[in-house]
Computed example of a mutant assay.
Amino acid sequence: MTAVAQQRREMFWQIVRYGVNGGIVTALYSAVLVVLDSWSHLPLQICNIAGYLAAVTLGYVLHSRVTFRNHGKRDRASKIRFVLASIPSLALNAFWAWLLTEALKLPHWTLYVPIWFVTPALLFVLNRWWVFR
Results as ranks from 00 to 15, higher is better:
2 T>F: 08
2 T>E: 12
4 V>A: 10
5 A>H: 14
7 Q>P: 06
8 R>D: 08
8 R>Y: 06
12 F>K: 10
14 Q>S: 09
14 Q>W: 13
15 I>F: 09
16 V>K: 07
18 Y>E: 08
18 Y>R: 15
20 V>K: 14
21 N>H: 03
22 G>A: 03
25 V>Q: 02
26 T>L: 01
27 A>G: 12
29 Y>E: 02
30 S>D: 00
30 S>E: 00
33 L>R: 14
35 V>A: 09
39 W>R: 14
45 Q>Y: 13
45 Q>M: 10
49 I>T: 15
49 I>S: 13
51 G>R: 02
57 T>E: 01
57 T>F: 00
59 G>R: 06
59 G>M: 12
63 H>E: 04
64 S>H: 13
65 R>G: 12
66 V>D: 03
69 R>D: 08
70 N>Y: 14
70 N>T: 10
75 D>A: 15
76 R>Y: 11
77 A>D: 14
81 R>I: 11
82 F>L: 11
83 V>Q: 05
84 L>R: 07
84 L>E: 04
85 A>R: 05
85 A>W: 04
87 I>P: 09
88 P>W: 08
90 L>P: 08
90 L>K: 05
90 L>Q: 06
94 A>W: 07
96 W>D: 00
105 K>C: 09
106 L>K: 05
107 P>F: 02
107 P>G: 01
107 P>Q: 04
110 T>K: 11
115 I>F: 03
116 W>L: 00
117 F>C: 05
123 L>M: 06
123 L>N: 00
125 V>N: 06
125 V>F: 15
127 N>I: 04
130 W>I: 09
132 F>S: 15
